[in-house]
């Protein structure tokens, strides 16, 4: 029951995208969110969509996996689009009812926003589908290194993140066990109104929470016993090697972005 939550996340594979360094994927995914705002004309949307589709194809994962990634966000996307359509009121009026107006500019804007949104979600889904969470955490740690200078405990945060990731399956297993134990005692989780259902989960959350604290205390002991100090620099076992593919990928993205800027210059 709880393991379903994780479906739609990392799917191991051997595609070119899978093998890229997590840092490249992270940089590109973040940069893409900003670069996409250069797209303001139909040719540029076409270009950005072609790029995204190419990346999606290169992951070797079926389109259905991506649809599953988009589904939870579809309402947010439609809502944002609807807002654009209703509140951009310039241009020729297509339809009017009282103060509600649908104009050509509104529709064009709405569609543009929808496409941007979709492309950003697709690219971020590529990131989460093809990158092991741990590699992603490592990549974040490395990219955040500069923040160390201003006193941000980057290494500690990264260790916390990696431990949190490591304990997700353990806690899900435990939640499942508690739910089953409560079921065996006659608790019904799938009946009644929303309030009753939420109430049914209280006896699950409390033992889960107490156990999580117990685990944290024991884990702290185990870490200390193995010489963890928190105040000293640690070396890293997991090392990532930048490869020629990574340079090629980054260059391709830069070329894509320049082309997008050029399209904007041409078509406005």
């Amino acid at each position: 029951m709880f393991n379903k939550i994780l479906i739609g996340r990392f799917i191991p594979g051997h595609s070119l995208v899978h093998r890229l360094d997590a840092r490249v994927k992270l940089i590109v995914s973040i940069a893409f969110i900003f670069v996409i705002f250069l797209a303001t004309s139909w040719p540029s949307y076409l270009w950005a969509s072609a790029f995204t589709l190419l990346v999606v194809m290169m992951t070797g994962l079926g389109l259905r996996v991506y649809l599953r990634g988009i589904r939870p966000l579809i309402y947010l996307m439609l809502f944002t689009t609807a807002l654009q359509i209703l509140f951009v009121t310039t241009g020729p009026i297509w339809w009017q009812w009282g103060w509600l107006k649908i104009t050509e500019d509104g529709v064009v804007n709405g569609i543009a926003i929808f496409i941007r949104f979709l492309l950003i979600i697709l690219i971020s889904t590529v990131l989460t589908l093809t990158t092991a969470p741990l590699d992603l955490a490592d990549a974040m740690e490395q990219l955040l290194q500069p923040l160390k200078k201003i006193g941000v405990p980057v290494a500690e945060l990264a260790l916390m993140l990696s431990i949190a990731l490591r304990f997700i399956p353990t806690l899900l297993d435990e939640a499942e066990k508690i739910v089953n134990a409560q079921r065996a005692r006659g608790v019904r989780f799938n009946e009644g109104n929303l309030l009753q259902r939420v109430k049914a989960f209280v006896p699950v959350l409390i033992p889960l929470f107490i156990n999580a604290i117990k685990r944290a205390i024991e884990l702290g002991d185990a870490m200390e016993a193995r010489g963890y100090r928190g105040d000293v620099e640690r070396t890293k076992y997991r090392q990532h090697h930048w490869q020629i593919n990574d340079t090629v990928a980054l260059l391709s993205f830069i070329i894509f972005s320049c082309a997008l800027a050029w399209l904007r210059y041409i078509f406005g």
Partner: peptide
């Protein structure tokens, strides 16, 4: 310790074994 889960610090087997070594700043 007693509980197998509550003393597994690393994300993988190798990472877990390396944890104590990282703490002691052992070269890679």
């Amino acid at each position: 310790f007693q509980n197998p889960d509550n003393q597994f610090v690393g994300a993988t087997v190798a990472d877990d074994v390396a944890f104590g070594l990282e703490n002691r700043q052992m070269p890679h």
